[in-house]
């Protein structure tokens, strides 16, 4: 997975932003509670902490995913507020 995506960073992020994002992500996924998430965060940080490497990722990445379906994992799990309208529209439709 693209390390920028894992840490929720823009590709122009500097060292300070990378470190801040890493620490924030660690608070949400500490190793004792989410070992898998922690591993992903750690790998992403290792990939982005070096400026040269970060530049290379920005210019020559991201690498393509071997399986298209992995995009589903990368897609954000959102729960958006949409107001009452769309919910009520479902009920207003005639029952079949």
């Amino acid at each position: 997975m693209n390390p920028f995506t894992v840490l929720g960073l823009e590709e122009t992020a500097d060292d300070e932003a990378v470190r801040a994002a890493y620490l924030a992500a660690l608070r949400l996924s500490p190793p004792d509670r989410d070992p898998e998430g922690f591993r992903r965060i750690r790998d992403a940080y290792e990939a982005l902490r070096d400026k040269e490497h970060r530049l290379a990722l920005r210019l020559f990445g991201p690498p393509p995913l071997a399986d298209l379906m992995e995009l589903l994992d990368a897609f954000p799990y959102e729960r958006r507020y949409v107001g009452p309208g769309p919910w009520l529209n479902v009920l207003r439709e005639r029952r079949r």
Partner: peptide, 30 residues
């Protein structure tokens, strides 16, 4: 889903930020 009406599809799409559509289209692309 017994019905996949326009209103249901729209609601799913809006609340999930498009994830529902992704879940159906990505396998098709694959």
């Amino acid at each position: 889903m017994e019905d996949r009406s326009f209103a249901v599809a729209t609601l799913l799409d809006k609340v999930s930020g498009g994830r529902a559509l992704l879940q159906s289209r990505l396998p098709q692309l694959n």
